[in-house]
Nucleic acid binder design. Structure first.
Length: 850
RNA sequence: GCCCGGGUGGCGGAAUCGGUAGACGCAGCGGACUUAAAAUCCGCCGGCCUUAAACGGUCGUGCCGGUUCGACUCCGGCCCCGGGCACCA
C-alpha cells in the first residue's frame, strides 16, 4: 500500500483560507436575479479573546450560511464589534489604558482568531460601534426622535455609590454594596433620557404572532415582558387633604377587601411629612438603601411604616391606613398600590407583619369557604362581604365594580403594559455621546453639528464619567453645556443588522441596499438575549421603518437561540469583601462519586478557591475557556466539528474538553479513507445498486438532509459518522469502489458547512470537482431506500417479547398470524384470551391480553 | 419573588406525530498489530436475577400520581439545575 499523506490541519486550513481569500469567495453583492439569504450572528463585545461561547455561536451561524450557499442562495454573512461598554472602562481602571486602545487591540486579536476558524464572513462590511462613522447616525436618529417627540426626559431611580460618587450598574451591586467601595448602595432619582417604546407596545406584542420561525419560548417571554393587562385605575381621597392617591389593579373584584394602601417613599404625599416625623424620616432613608434590580426588590424583606394618613375607600367610604413601603417605586406606575391581604400573597404577608385587618371578599367558586388564615386565596370565585356586589362571579364583579367606579367618577378602565419606556442615558464615558446641549436658560436643544465626537484619550478613575470632568468636551461657552451622558450600548446594537447592508453609506444612516438584504433571514445568538436585545432591535426596526429608511416590519425572520456554554466559576474573597474570579483552566478540582466538587485549588499556588456554581461564560466571572489551545492542537475543523456535535444548538452546554479527540479521530479517518480510495475514476453514471451499504448511505443522507432543515446539527454529524462506518469495510474491495466514491462525495458535501477546510481539500485534491463551494447539494436515491425485509417487535400487553424479520410487504392478517406463532410469544399468550391486536406497520405488533 | 427553559448509562447526547429507550461519540475493558509505546483496526459495554454461554426474566428516562393496548413523549402535583428580570453584554 502506498504511503498516505498524514492529515495536517494547520496546512490544509491555511491553504483553504488562502483560496477563499484570493477568490473573494464570501464578498456579497446585491443581485436581484438571485435569491438572497442574510445570515447574521450576534456581534461580539470585544472583551479580549474569543471564548467557547463565541466559537459555538459563530460556528452555528457559519454552518447556516455555508449550507444556504450550497443550496444556491446569494448569502450575506457579515461580522462586526459591539465595541462600547463597561468592560473597557473596567480594564482602564485596572491597567490605566484608554478604553479606545484596549478595545481596538482586542478587536485585532479577536478578528485574527475568527479568521483562524475559517468563518465565511464578508469582512468588507465590518462595523465597530465605537467608530464615528457608525455612531454619528445614532446621534442623527436620536435628534430625529427628539423632533418626533419619541424622546423625553424624566427622573429615574439608579444605584448610587455614596463613596465613589458614581452610578453603578446592577451587576456592580453585590449584596447591596458597591463592588469597589463596599459602601451600602442607595437608590437615587436622577434625570434620564427615555425612548417611548411603550408607544409601540401594542405593535411589538401583535408582531410576535407573525414570527412563526422564532422559538416559541422567546415569543412567550416577550409577550410576558410586554405584559398587556386590562384593569382599573382607582382614585382614593384622603381624609383632611385635597390630594388623592391613584392605584392601578387588575383585580377590581377584590377592591372591597382593601385594608391598606402602600406608597413609595418618594411619593409627593410623603415628602411634607418627613420633616415633621423623625421616625418616618429614618424609615424613608432606609427605604432608599439597596439596589434597583427587580429581583432584589421582589426578594428583599417587605417593610412598611404608617404615614399617619387615612384614605377613604371609594365604594364603602371606610378609612384605610396609608403605609410607606420599601417595595413600591415612585418611578414605576403610579407609585402606589392597594393592599388586599385576603387575596394577594404579598399583601397577606405584609398584613401579618403589621397586624393589619384581612377582609375576605371572594369565596371559592366550588366547595366550602377557603381558609385565609394560612395564606391568601388568589383564585377567582364568588363575591362575599361586598355589599351590592355579593354573589357576582369574579369576572362579572370586575365589570360591575369598574362600571360603578366610572359612574361615580372614582376611576377609569385602562389597558396597561408591564413594559416600561427605555432609559437610554448612561453616566459613562465609553459610549456614544447623546447629541444634546443644555442651554444657558435651562432648556435643551439638539446639537448644532453632528457628529459629536467622543474624545478617545480620557481614562476613567471610577468616580463618575470623565466627560463630566472634561470642559474641553462639555463647555460650549456662553453658559451652554454639552450633555455628558452617553447612550446605552443596546442603542448601538439595535440597528447594526441594517447598517451591514450599506456600511459605507456616507450621506444617510441607510441606503437602498437594505431593501435587497433585509429582513435578516436567519439570526443566531445566545438565548440570554431573548428579551432585551431582541425587543429593542424589533423596536428600532419599526422606528427606522417609520423614518422611511426600510420597509419590513420585523428585522429577523428566523431566530436560533443558541444555548449557553456554561462553566464552573471559582473565586476568593478579598480583604475588602470583593471577589476575585479565577479561570477554570487555572483551577484543579477533586470530585466525589456523584461528580460534586469536594475541593478546588489554584494550580499556581495550591491555595483553595471557592466554587461559585456553573454559570454563563463571562468576562466578569472569568470563566471563559480559551479555544485557542484546541485550535493549535487539533485545527479549526476539529473544534468546529466538536462544538456542533456535542450538543444540539439550542441546549446549554457545560464545558468539558473530553471528546474533542474523538472529533479529531473522525476527521483523520475521513482523510485516510478518502486517500485510500484515491482520485475519482470510472463512471459518473448514477448508481443503481440497492445493496445494504447504499441503503445505509441513502437512509442516513435522508436523515441528514432533514436534520439540516431542522437545524439539528449534532445528528447531522451522527449520520455522517454512520455513513463513514458503513464505507470503511469496503475501502479495500475493488468492486465496491463506485459505492465508496459515491459515499465520499455525499459525505464531503454534507460536512462542507461544518468542516469547510478538510472537505475543500479532499474535494478538489481527489478530483470530485473544482471547488466544493460550487458543488450541487446531494440528493437521496429513493431506490436505494427500499428494503425487502423489515424487523418488527412483537409485544404482549406493551412489553417486547420477540423480534420478527419479515418481508416488508406482508399484509396485516399475515403479520398477526406470524406474531402469534412465535415461540416466546406463545409462552405469554397460552391459555389466555386475546382481546385485540394492534399493528403499527413497519414497527410492531402488540397483542393485548385480558 | 416573577417569567422562560432543562433533568435519559460513568460522560455528551439519540429516539422528528404516543409505538422496540440508549443511535452516534467520549471514557473504560478485552483482543490484533508492534521489541515497546503511540497511532490504527476488531470486539464488549445501563442495573439486578437466571445461565457454562446464549436464550430468557425484571427494574430503569429527576420524584409522586393519572390517562393509554402502549408514556422519555400527554395531564396534575412536587424537587433540583440553568437563563432573564430593564445600567453585564
Amino acid at each position: 500500500m502506498t504511503q498516505i499523506t498524514p492529515y495536517c490541519p494547520q496546512q490544509v486550513e491555511a491553504d483553504a483560507q488562502a483560496h477563499w481569500q484570493t477568490t473573494r469567495a464570501f464578498q456579497a453583492t446585491e443581485d436581484p436575479e438571485r435569491e438572497k439569504f442574510y445570515c447574521l450572528s450576534m456581534f461580539p463585545y470585544p472583551s479580549g479573546k474569543l471564548h467557547m461561547g463565541h466559537v459555538r455561536n459563530y460556528t452555528i451561524g457559519d454552518v447556516v450560511a455555508r449550507y444556504q450557499r450550497m443550496l444556491g442562495k446569494n448569502v450575506l454573512q457579515p461580522m462586526g464589534w459591539d465595541a462600547f461598554g463597561m468592560p473597557a472602562e473596567n480594564a482602564a481602571l485596572k491597567q490605566g489604558q484608554a478604553p479606545a486602545d484596549w478595545t481596538r487591540a482586542n478587536i485585532a486579536d479577536m478578528k485574527r482568531q475568527l479568521n483562524r476558524l475559517g468563518f465565511a464572513y464578508d469582512w468588507e462590511r465590518e462595523i465597530a460601534t465605537c467608530d464615528t462613522d457608525y455612531y454619528r447616525w445614532e446621534q442623527w436618529l436620536f435628534t430625529r426622535l427628539v423632533e418626533k417627540g419619541l424622546v423625553y426626559r424624566k427622573q429615574a431611580t439608579v444605584n448610587w455609590d455614596p463613596v465613589d460618587q458614581t452610578v453603578l450598574a446592577n451587576e456592580q451591586v453585590i449584596d447591596g454594596r458597591g463592588w469597589r467601595s463596599g459602601a451600602l448602595v442607595e437608590r437615587r432619582d436622577i434625570p434620564q433620557w427615555f425612548l417611548r417604546i411603550t408607544d409601540y407596545a401594542e405593535e411589538l406584542l401583535q408582531g410576535l404572532d407573525q414570527l412563526t420561525a422564532w422559538p416559541e419560548q422567546v415569543r412567550t417571554m416577550q409577550r410576558h415582558w410586554i405584559g398587556r393587562s386590562s384593569g382599573v385605575q382607582i382614585r382614593f381621597d384622603i381624609v383632611g387633604q385635597a390630594d388623592q392617591v391613584e392605584i392601578y389593579t387588575t383585580r377590581p373584584d377584590t377592591v372591597m377587601g382593601v385594608t391598606c394602601l402602600a406608597i413609595a417613599a418618594e411619593h409627593p404625599l410623603v415628602t411634607p411629612l418627613v420633616q415633621q416625623h423623625a421616625d418616618l424620616a429614618s424609615f424613608v432613608r432606609n427605604c432608599q438603601q439597596g439596589g434597583v434590580a427587580e429581583a432584589e426588590l421582589e426578594t428583599m424583606e417587605k417593610c412598611g411604616y404608617p404615614l399617619g394618613l387615612q384614605a377613604i375607600h371609594p365604594i364603602s367610604g371606610d378609612y384605610v391606613p396609608i403605609y410607606v413601603a420599601n417595595f413600591v417605586l415612585m418611578s414605576y406606575g403610579t407609585g402606589a398600590v392597594m393592599a388586599v391581604p385576603a387575596h394577594d400573597q404579598r399583601d397577606w404577608e405584609f398584613a401579618r407583619k403589621y397586624d393589619l385587618p384581612m377582609r375576605q371578599v371572594i369565596a371559592p367558586a366550588e366547595g366550602t369557604g377557603a381558609d385565609i388564615s394560612q395564606g391568601a386565596c388568589t383564585d377567582p370565585g364568588v363575591l362575599i362581604n361586598s355589599g351590592s356586589f355579593d354573589g357576582l362571579t369574579s369576572a362579572a364583579a370586575c365589570d360591575a365594580i369598574a362600571d360603578w367606579l366610572i359612574r361615580h367618577d372614582k376611576g377609569s378602565r385602562q389597558t396597561r403594559y408591564r413594559l416600561r419606556d427605555w432609559s437610554v442615558s448612561r453616566q459613562r464615558y465609553w459610549g456614544c455621546p447623546i447629541p444634546m446641549v443644555h442651554q444657558a436658560d435651562g432648556t435643551l436643544q439638539t446639537a448644532d453639528e453632528l457628529p459629536v465626537v467622543l474624545p478617545e484619550d480620557l481614562v476613567p478613575d471610577g468616580t463618575g464619567s470623565p466627560l463630566k470632568k472634561s470642559p474641553a468636551f462639555y463647555n460650549l461657552g456662553a453658559g451652554r453645556r454639552r450633555e455628558t451622558d452617553t447612550l446605552d450600548t443596546f442603542f448601538a446594537s439595535s440597528w447594526y443588522y441594517a447598517r451591514y447592508c450599506c456600511p459605507d453609506a456616507g450621506q444617510a444612516m441607510l441606503d437602498e441596499r437594505v431593501h435587497y438584504w433585509l429582513p435578516v433571514d436567519q439570526y443566531v445568538g445566545g438565548v440570554e438575549h431573548a428579551i432585551l436585545h431582541l425587543l429593542y432591535a424589533r423596536f428600532f426596526n419599526k422606528l427606522l421603518r417609520d423614518e422611511g429608511l426600510l420597509h419590513c416590519d420585523e428585522p429577523f425572520t428566523r431566530l436560533l437561540t443558541q444555548g449557553m456554554v456554561v462553566a464552573e466559576t471559582y473565586y476568593r474573597v478579598q480583604p475588602d469583601g470583593s471577589r476575585d474570579w479565577y479561570n477554570p483552566a487555572e483551577v484543579r478540582v477533586e470530585k466525589d462519586q456523584q461528580g460534586r466538587i469536594q475541593r478546588a485549588w489554584l494550580s499556581a499556588d495550591g491555595q483553595p478557591v471557592i466554587p461559585g456554581g456553573t454559570e454563563k461564560m463571562s468576562k466578569s466571572k472569568n470563566n471563559g475557556i480559551d479555544p485557542q489551545r484546541l485550535i493549535d492542537q487539533y485545527g479549526a475543523d476539529t473544534v468546529r466539528l466538536y462544538v456542533m456535535f456535542s450538543a444540539p444548538p439550542e441546549q446549554s452546554l457545560t464545558w468539558s474538553d473530553t471528546g474533542v479527540a474523538g472529533a479529531h479521530r473522525f476527521l483523520k479517518r475521513l482523510w485516510t479513507i478518502a486517500y485510500q480510495t484515491g482520485p475519482v475514476s470510472g463512471t459518473t453514471e448514477p448508481l443503481t445498486d440497492t445493496g445494504p451499504v447504499r441503503h445505509v448511505l441513502h437512509s442516513q443522507l435522508q436523515k441528514a438532509l432533514s436534520d439540516y432543515e431542522r437545524q439539528h446539527y449534532n445528528t447531522v454529524i451522527s449520520a455522517c459518522m454512520s455513513m463513514l462506518n458503513a464505507l470503511q469495510p469496503l475501502v479495500s474491495e475493488a468492486t465496491a469502489r463506485p459505492v465508496v466514491q459515491e459515499g465520499l462525495s455525499i459525505l464531503l458535501r454534507l460536512l462542507a458547512p461544518i468542516t469547510p477546510h478538510i472537505t475543500h481539500h479532499l474535494w478538489s485534491q481527489l478530483g470530485y470537482g473544482p471547488d466544493i463551494l460550487q458543488a450541487d447539494w446531494p440528493q437521496v436515491d429513493q431506490a436505494a431506500l427500499q428494503q425487502k425485509q423489515v424487523q418488527m417487535a412483537i409485544q404482549v400487553n406493551g412489553k417486547v417479547r420477540a423480534q420478527l424479520t419479515i418481508a416488508a410487504d406482508t399484509d396485516e392478517s399475515a403479520l398477526r398470524q406470524a406474531a402469534q406463532v412465535h415461540e416466546n410469544v406463545q409462552r405469554f399468550i397460552r391459555d389466555r384470551t386475546i382481546r385485540r391486536i394492534i399493528v403499527v406497520p413497519g414497527r410492531l405488533v402488540n397483542i393485548v391480553m385480558v
